[in-house]
Design a protein around this nucleic acid. Structure first.
Lengths: 200, 200
DNA sequence: TTAATCTTTGAACGTGCATTCAGATAATCA
DNA sequence: TGATTATCTGAATGCACGTTCAAAGATTAA
């Protein structure tokens, strides 16, 4: 009757509730996206969320997992397809901003969750994913150091800076919705190219 | 008996409560730094905060104003004293990280307030200050473009990226207290020097 | 000292929240 | 079909919070 120890209804409801949570958080912010509001948006009563997810925390974790998965699938292939580390770093930046541009609700929800979803240091619903994102950048930087495309640099410092710069755009987009993300991406890619490339 | 329409006791209490709020937020995070906890830390009852500050919002605004003022006084002179824009940008980065290193509680409190203190977009207690900080960076970048020290670049993009990189360090410091901020500052300064300087 | 004002107390209040649960309903099975 | 399990309802519960306020205490002025 069901696969993976999960009913058809359960799968559908969970997906629906995760989607409603994303929309609710993107629209109203984390603080005002209560269980009641999310449930109302899905057209069900509050108990349903507790029934399918153990707690609000679990729901939010699923939201994060969903956004991270979709984002990775949109970005990673472009980086891998690049002919070299320099092109790979540019692709990482451009496709990241492209994802932000094409998935504004996802990004708004993520920004809200990261900012408000738990302690600023570890153990929030985003715990682990942040470091993973930084390590993804570091991999590209190591790649470029091995091929000799990049200068001698501290990959950790540059990776943290780049991640911060990208994430900051999602926040700025909330305050400035008309931001030209394509141009922004080009500028940021240029900047980090200058910052990392070897020689003149 | 008093100056500026403010009693001696009032001045002292306000300063004490702002200080306790900073410590409480730095130690427990914004969400767990309730009025009751802040009052307890100051050794007074909850009503005192409402008496001296109209609301929690007002208290937080004072915290932000205090940290911003102290920070500006620590950083701006070094930037102004620099012999040129390149040196100015380096000084801005180094002294910023130095301030983070020497005022960890201030920075932790600020990060918490910015992240959690209100809507992610405008109108939080940090509203205005964020843009002002970006504009301070932009001024240095304009300076360097006028003197010809910097390449042609979008000052807005670079300023946002640099601010994000600096602010990200305050967050990382919470998760990684042993971070070598001096070395980190040098690396970041090098990176943005490469990213902005003209020619080879 | 007395009167007036400033400051503090701490319980009480209202609000909003996540979570629970007994009972109702729907889906699935035998 | 009836029996069993899955899903849903929505009011109730308990908690944490910021704020209020009458009363008490402390300080200052006359």
């Amino acid at each position: 009757m069901h696969s993976d120890n999960q009913t058809f209804i359960e799968t559908a409801r969970r997906a629906q509730l995760v989607d409603c949570a994303i929309q609710a958080i993107a629209e109203w912010g984390y603080a005002r996206a209560s269980m009641a509001k999310i449930a109302a948006r899905a057209g069900v009563s509050t108990g349903v969320i507790s029934y399918h997810f153990g707690s609000k925390e679990e729901l939010i974790e699923q939201v994060v997992a969903t956004v991270v998965t979709v984002g990775k699938e949109a970005i990673e292939p472009h980086v891998r397809a690049a002919g070299g580390a320099r092109a790979g770093l540019r692709a990482l930046i451009i496709t990241n901003l492209d994802f932000i541009r094409t998935h504004p609700a996802y990004m708004r929800a993520m920004v809200e969750i990261i900012a408000r979803g738990g302690p600023v240091d570890g153990s929030g619903p985003y715990a682990g994913h942040g470091d993973a994102a930084i390590e993804d950048v570091q991999k590209v930087l190591h790649w470029g150091q091995q091929t000799g495309e990049f200068r001698h640099l501290d990959t950790r410092v540059v990776a943290v800076a780049l991640r911060a710069a990208i994430d900051a755009i999602a926040t700025r987009l909330s305050a400035e919705p008309d931001l030209d993300l394509v141009r922004y991406g080009e500028q940021l890619a240029d900047m980090f190219d200058f910052a990392t490339r070897k020689g003149q």
